[in-house]
Design a protein around this nucleic acid. Structure first.
Lengths: 341, 341
DNA sequence: TACCATTGCGTTCACGAGAACGCAATATGC
DNA sequence: GCATATTGCGTTCTCGTGAACGCAATGGTA
């Protein structure tokens, strides 16, 4: 059985209160006694009982705010993860407020952060819009000792305690590695991005193109096309490009637009002949994967991106846990029609 | 903030003891009052506080036994997961005994199970040897209300409360899907299994061959070769087969033996030309993956297979949780040189 | 010397849930 | 009609921890 603080107290010949003062450096204790207690606690391998601690901590209201971006299938996964974590920490007496903001708007992001702070949140997890003002707000929160965790896309250099999300550059490289394996010799490859301003997108495209060029010299890369996450746009691009070049063997999408590409390929009767790889693991795209219209989808573990930040904030507020790692890249999972869940 | 049983009591105009009797069906209560309390609890969304419950439950010693098979790199991962779960549940007052048995021996498996039962374990997680006697022991434990969870390889039809491990058949199919994507036309494929008696191996080979034949009619499958998890054996097989057939384009290993295959390919100067896919995600094999000697490795989430069973048993013993799903297949992850962790 | 501040420690309460215990009021047995 | 179950409920203790409180003994100041 686990060692209790009472056992430490008995072994040290003091009271439990003294043990508490020694281990939590609360002062009002003879330094020699404190040292002895700490030594004994270490020897006996004392670990505070999580349940007892949780119970007493339930008095200080831990309130965690979560800000999630507009409703996309991926954000739905993030939401699910956040809700699961919410249920768990609520059983420990904490409170979680989840806000879904309507647009990827900078003002709304900042306003919601302020609102959550005023509602008494002592920790915030946020899918941030990329902007200097968001960075400033994060830093201001940090200065007020309200820890912030960034989700999915990081605000580099800001004072968030950590970032939970995928390594976009690597995400592109993984796609490139797969493309390199399945492409026939001397093919041309089309890259379709979302918004040119989105950092994740940019990084994925960089990772993809650099890696593909370096491991398959025979392949010719077309210039990046921007579909602005619009399926009609991606359809048009696909049709246009396939008409212009007859040696396109693969299409890579760094963001959404898979549906448009599939539609174009189908109408041109090239489904399966042109390989499609995308970083957008949505339910709709999974269906295309099952049907063989898409060869690989790369996932970013949305569930974990919602779940982890809440748990990290809870642990920090609960135990004063410091997290050494500033960045936690979630795994990049490769999905084929066979290993879908 | 979360609702407490005291709040339910106040709302219902009764004492907390009555609420407890109503919600836990402990009798000695007016049925009408019980019904009213239950209704109010439901309305107010009452969920017992996990910490409070844990604290009071720490009196009844929850003791969980874990039996892990001989030291292989994969089992090391399972062990890590089990140790992590052990730490977590020990903070809740439970106890976890982990036993690593030396060989995949049926007698030793059974003896260790008995030993753990005599040590007072009220739940067992075991990586079972496949044998009728093991099945009988599991059923006997179930009859004594000691829940058993099977890890990694299931004893089908036994009275384990659930199984945590990969779906071997599907693992083979995933490999086949990848092989089908990367193989040149009209190639021959070599399949190397471990022991012919091992069910997981058998299933993987079945899944692989059935799926590959069904989606690539041009491919010719060679008869399954057995390397008995021995690298010298797999090396010999590879060399022999490559000498006999010059059109082998891919090698699939359902178990270990990757090193031997890589060595053979290297000596024959065919590294990279012959595609290698294996279900054995070990650190050594990861190195081959990084070096491009292996194209894909399929993982079975060893960590989760150690972690989950302990948590499931803890929850069952703690809450009396029934788990509906008898089987929990862990995800089959696809690893390339780019998404290794 | 009288007074207050500080130190060093033990004691006690609080947290939420489970369960034993106790105590009335009613029911049953003879 | 009295003794003894049984029912229905409130009260109290327990778990382990954190923190407030209390109380002596000492230190310093006027």
């Amino acid at each position: 059985m686990a060692v209790t603080s009472q056992q430490i107290a008995d072994a040290a010949g003091v009271s439990r209160g003294t043990v508490d003062r020694a281990l939590n450096n609360r002062g009002r204790i003879n330094p020699e006694v404190a040292e002895r207690v700490r030594r004994i606690a270490k020897e006996m391998g004392y670990q505070p009982n999580r349940a007892g601690r949780a119970l007493v901590m339930s008095r200080r209201a831990i309130k965690i705010g979560v800000i999630i971006q507009p409703k996309t299938p991926f954000m739905g996964k993030v939401m699910e993860g956040a809700i699961e974590a919410k249920k768990e920490v609520e059983q420990m007496g904490a409170e979680v407020l989840i806000r879904e903001i309507e647009s990827m708007d900078v003002d709304q992001t900042i306003n919601t952060m302020q609102e959550l702070k005023e509602a008494g949140c002592n920790g915030i997890a946020v899918v941030p819009a990329e902007d200097e003002r968001v960075r400033n707000t994060i830093d201001a929160f940090a200065a007020e000792h309200i820890p912030v965790v960034t989700i999915n896309c990081d605000i580099q250099g800001s004072k968030r305690i950590c970032f939970i999300g995928p390594d976009a550059l690597q995400g592109g490289r993984v796609a490139a590695g797969l493309m390199a394996e399945i492409l026939p010799k001397d093919s041309r490859v089309l890259m379709i991005s979302g918004y040119p301003t989105n950092n994740s997108n940019k990084n994925r495209i960089s990772g993809f193109s650099e890696e593909l060029v370096s491991c398959r010299e025979d392949i010719k890369l077309l210039d990046v096309q921007y579909a602005f996450e619009d399926d009609r746009m991606s359809e048009m691009i696909t049709k246009g490009m396939l008409k212009e070049y007859d040696d396109i063997g693969g299409i890579y999408l760094s963001a959404s637009g898979v549906q448009g590409v599939c539609k174009a390929l189908e109408e041109l009767g090239m489904t399966g002949r042109v390989k499609v790889i995308s970083n957008d693991l949505t339910d709709q795209n999974k269906q295309f994967l099952r049907e063989g219209k898409v060869q690989f989808l790369l996932g970013q573990e949305g569930h974990r991106q919602g779940y982890e930040p809440v748990q990290i904030l809870f642990n920090k507020l609960f135990y004063g846990n410091e997290r050494e790692a500033e960045f936690t890249y979630t795994e990049i999972s490769i999905k084929t029609k066979y290993n879908l869940v």
